[in-house]
């Protein structure tokens, strides 16, 4: 049986792709499935840091693709989460070190031994993006509730459709309920009305993310982290469970409006 490859992408930089990839990967692995996280941001690797695995890197993705090393040898087991492995990016190379065909073969290979392959995509629409999506079955598009990020998300969704990665999921990251309430921030309804894609989850702006990133422990492992709980719910939805989107956010009547987006079928 073959697993599912999901690419986490955004267009605009710094909106939370790496944070999402790490937490979704960890969240999935914590509830049973085996997960390989692939850092496809060659030259700007981050995923190892967020997972606290930087000091264990011996081989990287480029070594594997160039045939110098078996993929199993390059994969790093997570310290605390048994089912989670990381394939780190090369830091001293750039996006042109691999081709989409090579990434496709690599992803296909990983799907043989893992239930989920989560790919952390670099920002932009150039070769790094093309590499990361080459072997993906599905895509998660991350945006923040800012017009510039939403526009870039729209562009990325169009490009994903053209590359036959259909029906992307959307994550709205760094929502601040207080700002939305004051109408100082786009609300999720407007955002979905514009992008017309399926909402996978809403993650609050939460300083626990910064603390967990610095510690190298994914927020999903911290029961008190609101963002962590939102990512756990997202992982659960990816596994096909019907988790209401409002559940992890503050008991605020404004958020209950999200619940209606859950009715959309998951293809």
């Amino acid at each position: 049986m073959s697993g599912t490859a999901i690419v986490v992408t955004s267009g605009k930089g710094g909106v939370g792709k790496t944070t999402a990839a790490a937490n979704i990967g960890a969240g999935l692995a914590m509830s049973g499935p085996t997960v390989a996280l692939v850092d496809a941001d060659i030259g700007l690797r981050n995923l190892d840091l967020v997972l606290g695995l930087e000091n264990r890197i011996v081989y990287d993705l480029v070594n594997v693709v160039e045939g110098g090393c078996d993929v199993q040898k390059a994969l790093i087991r997570h310290k605390h989460i048994e089912n989670l492995s990381l394939l780190p990016a090369a830091q001293s190379r750039d996006k042109t070190a691999v081709t989409p065909e090579q990434m496709k073969a690599l992803t296909l290979g990983l799907k043989e031994s893992f239930d989920f392959v989560i790919l952390d995509c670099p920002a932009g629409i150039e070769q790094g993006f093309k590499n990361a999506i080459a072997g993906a079955d599905r895509a998660i598009v991350v945006t923040t509730p800012e017009m510039s990020a939403v526009r870039d998300a729209d562009r990325i969704i169009g490009m994903l459709e053209a590359e036959e990665v259909k029906n992307p999921w959307l994550i709205v990251n760094r929502i601040r309920p207080d700002m939305v309430k004051r109408h100082d921030m786009m609300n999720v309804d407007d955002l979905i009305d514009f992008l017309k894609v399926e909402l996978l989850g809403v993650v609050p702006d939460d300083e626990s993310i910064i603390i967990s990133t610095n510690r190298g422990i994914p927020a999903v492992m911290d029961e008190k982290s609101r963002a962590g709980r939102a990512f756990l719910d997202i992982a659960s939805r990816i596994m096909g469970n019907d988790v209401p989107i409002a559940a992890t956010l503050e008991p605020d009547d404004w958020f209950s409006r999200f619940a209606k987006w859950l009715g959309i079928s998951r293809g």
Binding site: R151, D152, D154, R155, I157, G158, M159, E161, F194, K196
Partner: peptide, 24 residues
């Protein structure tokens, strides 16, 4: 379909879009 940012249609004639024409 919906035309998303970065996409374009150019036609010598009339154009009917069954979807949105997004900014960009």
């Amino acid at each position: 379909r919906t035309l998303r940012s970065g996409q374009a249609v150019s036609f010598d004639g009339n154009v009917v879009v069954m979807g949105d024409v997004n900014p960009g």
